[in-house]
């Protein structure tokens, strides 16, 4: 039950993808697209991006009609976007719109689900993340991740931070420095420096999440993916994490999924708004990118009426 024998109906019009699928061919449930001869600029043009501005920074991720499937179910359809270095990019959208699925496809965490499958292109600094000969293990060493629920290992604070460096077989003599530096970067050092050998599970939720961030940056990845990192935290802990993200921005490219629009507005430079398209016949809920733009524009002057409706609280 692994191979999915859906016939390939080529969607003729690339521009039709971002404008929601009332015109989608229903029934067969397959809206797979052959991505041959696709021009990326066409899709990005639809997102009203200012080319000059978009060109100012190095592109970290480039998704090219990226779709994610779980078995026969399509969770994300034809997402095309660029994510730039040393920016905070936020994914917002209603529940079930595939934000998390999209995020987890960036560091191949979806590989853990046997039925998960990706179509379309995803390039990381120009290299195909899902290309042949690419190991998800190596991908994840470059692209760190922080999860929704803080998940410290049932070990000491020190061992949590040292886990990544130990996996990479860094020199033992450097570990103390790495741990201190990472915890300092995560604004946690002063709170825990006297109890590094104590269990990480004895910390508060906010501290645990900062520990998870320290753990993720200990191996100096290039990108930090954050999946609703504050949803389990109180407002003060949330603000601390947000401060931390702003500080980390000068070294890391950060992609954050959030349910909290204020959070996206507060911390992110760019925002992608995704929505969910419910198939009339099958009832399948598939996520789609509506638009991606500078955060201030998304929140004050969105080009798509659905974005405006969502950010002003009229829908979702």
């Amino acid at each position: 039950m692994n191979a999915d024998p859906t016939p390939e109906h080529a969607l003729p019009d690339a521009a039709a993808a971002p404008t929601v699928g009332s015109s989608m061919p229903g029934g067969s449930g397959s809206s797979e697209t052959a991505s041959t001869g696709f021009d990326l600029s066409t899709a990005l043009g639809g997102a009203r991006a200012d080319d000059e501005e978009r060109a100012r920074a190095e592109v970290v991720f480039e998704a090219d009609r990226l779709s994610v499937f779980y078995g026969d179910f399509q969770a994300v359809r034809d997402v095309s976007m660029q994510i730039h270095a040393k920016e905070i990019t936020a994914f917002i959208g209603p529940s079930g719109c595939g934000k998390t699925t999209l995020l987890r496809s960036f560091n191949r965490m979806n590989d853990l689900i046997a039925s998960a499958r990706v179509e379309g292109g995803l390039r990381y600094h120009g290299e195909d993340v899902y290309g042949e000969g690419v190991s998800p293990v190596i991908v994840r060493r470059k692209i760190g991740m922080v999860f929704q629920k803080p998940n410290p290992f049932p070990k000491s604070i020190y061992d949590n931070v040292a886990y990544g460096p130990r996996v990479l077989k860094w020199k033992k003599s450097d570990l103390d420095d790495v741990v201190e530096e990472s915890l300092t970067r995560a604004a946690l050092w002063d709170e825990v420096k006297d109890r590094l050998d104590q269990s990480a599970l004895g910390m508060s939720g906010g501290q645990q999440q900062r520990l998870c961030i320290a753990r993720a940056i200990a191996t100096k990845p290039d990108v930090l993916l954050m999946d609703e990192p504050c949803s389990a935290l109180d407002p003060i802990a949330t603000l601390r994490i947000e401060d931390l993200m702003r500080e980390l921005k000068d070294e890391y490219s950060i992609v954050i999924v959030t349910h909290n629009m204020q959070q996206a507005a507060r911390v992110s430079d760019y925002t992608a708004f995704l929505t969910v398209d419910i198939d009339d016949e099958s009832g399948q809920r598939t996520g789609e990118l509506v638009e991606m733009d500078r955060t201030d524009r998304i929140f004050t002057n969105a080009s798509d009426p659905r974005t405006e409706a969502y950010v002003s609280g009229r829908f979702g």
Partner: peptide, 25 residues
């Protein structure tokens, strides 16, 4: 908890390493 294995994998551990250092203990 799945989150332990995921956490280890997200740090770049090989599946075997993640299982041996997180799941087995």
């Amino acid at each position: 908890p799945r989150s332990l294995k995921e956490g280890a994998l997200a740090l770049g551990a090989t599946p075997w390493k993640a299982v041996w250092t997180q799941v087995v203990p």
